[in-house]
C-alpha cells in the first residue's frame, strides 16, 4: 500500500524543569506518506515544535520511536544522524535561522559543504536554487540586508540544497505579513507538487489549510483528530456558505 516516510510510535517528550515535569508530547502516533503535504495545527504551546524536533532528529523523545524511511532513528550513530540531517531533511524555521556571517549564497552552500560536494558543483546548485526562489539578484547579500520574506526564501533554498525527501517547516509564515506569507506557502506547495517533496509543516496559519493534503490537529501533546483534504473542503465550504 502506501509508502510511509515518517511514522511515530507513542512518542512522548517530557521536559524537566527542576522538580516539575512538563509532558509536551503525550503519546503521538502518526504516519505520513511520501509526497504528502501535512499540516500540524494547534494552538501555541500544544506541542507542534516539539513534534517537529522529534521528526527532524533535532531532539530525542523521552519514550517511543520515530521511524523515517523505515529506519528507527534511535538506533542511528551520531554520524548517521548528522548525515540524515544533511541529506534527508530540509528545515525551515519561523525565525529563519540563517547564519548571520554567511551571505544568502553562503548559507545555501553550507549543507553542500557538509555533504562533501565539490566547490564548483555547490556554487552552481546554490545559484540555481536562489534563482528558483527569486533571489537571483540578492545572492551575495548578508541575511541582515534582506527582508523577512527574502530571508525565508533563502532558508527554503538552503533546505533544498541536498535534495531532501522531506521538508520540515515550523510556522514558516508566522513572522511574515499575509501577502508575503501566501507567497512562501505557494513556494513550499510548488516544491511539493513539482518535486514530490514530502512537506510537514507546523502552523496555525489558516492559509495553510487549502494547500494541505491532511491536517493533524494537535492539542496538549495529543493528536486530536486527522482531517483529510475532502473533509477540509467540506468544512471550508460550510464556512463559506454561512
Amino acid at each position: 500500500m502506501a509508502d510511509i516516510v515518517v511514522k511515530t510510535e507513542d512518542v512522548v517528550k517530557e521536559y524537566r524543569m527542576g522538580s516539575n515535569v512538563l509532558r509536551a508530547l503525550d503519546g503521538i502516533n502518526i504516519e505520513i506518506e511520501r509526497g504528502e503535504y501535512i499540516s500540524l495545527m494547534g494552538p501555541s504551546g500544544s506541542g507542534k515544535s516539539t513534534l517537529f524536533n522529534m521528526i527532524g532528529a533535532l531532539d530525542t523523545p523521552t519514550e517511543g520511536q520515530v521511524y523515517i524511511d523505515g529506519q528507527n532513528m534511535s538506533q542511528l550513530t551520531q554520524r548517521q544522524i548528522a548525515a540524515f540531517r544533511c541529506h534527508r531533511v530540509g528545515y525551515i524555521f519561523q525565525s529563519y535561522n540563517l547564519l548571520p556571517v554567511r551571505s544568502a549564497h553562503g548559507n545555501v552552500t553550507l549543507p553542500m559543504i557538509f555533504a562533501g560536494l565539490p566547490e564548483r558543483a555547490r556554487n552552481e546548485k546554490a545559484e540555481e536554487l536562489l534563482d528558483m526562489v527569486g533571489l537571483g539578484d540578492r545572492m551575495y547579500h548578508l541575511p541582515d540586508e534582506l527582508s523577512g520574506g527574502q530571508r525565508q526564501r533563502v532558508a527554503i533554498a538552503r533546505a533544498l540544497a541536498n535534495d531532501p525527501s522531506i521538508v520540515l517547516a515550523d510556522e514558516p509564515t508566522a513572522n511574515l505579513d499575509t501577502v508575503i506569507g501566501r507567497e512562501i506557502i505557494d513556494l513550499i506547495k510548488s516544491l511539493n507538487e513539482e518535486q514530490g517533496v514530502t512537506i510537514i509543516s507546523a502552523t496555525h496559519d489558516l492559509k495553510m489549510l487549502d494547500v494541505s493534503d491532511r491536517i493533524v490537529d494537535i492539542r496538549d501533546g495529543l493528536v486530536e483528530r486527522v482531517r483529510s483534504r475532502d473533509e477540509i473542503d467540506i468544512e471550508v465550504g460550510e464556512v463559506g456558505g454561512h
Binding site: 529506519q71 550513530t77 548517521q80 548528522a82 548525515a83 544533511c86 535534495d163 531532501p164
Partner: peptide
C-alpha cells in the same frame, strides 16, 4: 533523491574547508 537506501555516515570536512 535518495530513498530507502540505508542512512550513510557523515563525512569529515577537509581541514582547509574548516
Amino acid at each position: 533523491m535518495q530513498q530507502r537506501t540505508p542512512i550513510e555516515e557523515q563525512i569529515d570536512l577537509p581541514f582547509l574547508e574548516s
